[in-house]
Design a binder for these strands. Structure first.
Lengths: 197, 197
DNA sequence: ACCTGAACACCGTTCAAGT
DNA sequence: ACCTGAACACCGTTCAAGT
């Protein structure tokens, strides 16, 4: 024991994050703990706090992985032939699909909140920004007033998220991804039609 | 000790819920625990589990109180003279104001999620339903197809929520309630204009 | 330098025992 | 009948001590 040197510091960090993500995927965020991670990767609890600052630091890195996975899922799923409203609708569908297929890790994104006095670290904000830029670029293609494209991107993205989050957490009396899509479709159709006028 | 009979079972339940709500308001959901409640109300931990099923049962009752408070806040704030889009905009403003003024208890509504295998209890769903009915009745006044009013109410309500949640948790790069209102106003204007067409 | 594991101050939950 | 509080199986976090 001690001084095993089986893995580099960076390898241990990766083991922690990937094992933590698996724990969340299998048992939900409430069934997740750093002690469980330690048990699974075969290091003791002390080692986790050797390579990460604290619990929040670990959760944030796990959630960042989920954000990356979501970005990849959306980018790969987008059909470049679709235009305008249809492109946004597909974006919404991909968001819903990802959330549905990765319910536990997606939920963890919102079940965990940093204490209100502290701010999200810069590297984490950049991961969010990156996701967001996908929506923005889809919208900017067909919005006349370019200066307002960012505002509309925010409205649409946040609204899709709101519909998705309330549906999947059973706060809208809506069942199944098909009926969630009816709501996001209605949002997109009417909002964009309103913009055209 | 034992058999104090200082309070009825119902009184103890109320003490637990109101003390728990205060804990959340002052320290956030993460600074909340049933043991803290016990300490604050002057009963031992065992008593809490005498009058409530478990942790989830307690949190759900605290959150239901917040839902009720929100309903009251919105109903009292609504100006009955406002019509159509202006009425919905005011609804959004009231939602944002409530969330902003009661950030911790409002956050707790979403930071806590029942385990995915179980369902929300019926009495809790009814509290959500009651809140909805406010939005629904505001909308039904000027929607032609009455049969679709519920769908649109869900879309608008969930979208307002989405804008609010991503703004207040700093995931939209938006600061201050004023700029959140710009987004909800844009949502409502365009969605309703889209409906009219 | 790397890693351990005991120690500390917390959790939610149960239930035999006291009045 | 009502309430207690010890007991259990967990937490996150720290840090002296081992190799």
């Amino acid at each position: 024991m001690a001084r095993r040197n089986d893995h580099t510091k960076e390898e241990i960090r990766e083991m922690i994050v990937s094992s933590g993500l698996n724990l969340i995927k299998n048992s939900g965020f409430s069934g997740f703990s750093t002690r469980q991670i330690a048990k699974e990767i075969g290091y003791t609890i002390g080692t986790l706090y050797n390579v990460f600052d604290n619990y929040d630091d670990i959760v944030l890195h796990i959630n960042a992985t989920t954000l990356d996975d979501m970005g990849k899922f959306i980018e790969e799923g987008l059909n470049p032939k679709l235009k305008n409203a249809n492109a946004i609708k597909q974006l919404a569908k991909l968001y819903i699909d990802f959330a549905h297929k990765n319910r536990n890790s997606w939920s963890a994104l919102f079940e965990y909140n940093i204490p209100p006095e502290s701010d999200l670290p810069e590297w984490y904000n950049q991961r969010i920004e990156k996701l967001f830029s996908i929506v923005e670029s889809l919208l900017s293609e067909f919005i006349n007033k370019k200066s307002e494209a960012l505002k509309h991107a925010k409205v649409i993205w946040a609204s899709i998220h709101g519909i998705c989050v309330l549906s999947l957490t059973q706060k809208l009396n809506v069942a199944g991804t098909a009926s969630v899509e009816i709501l996001t479709d209605s949002l997109i159709e009417n909002y964009l039609r309103g913009l055209e006028k």
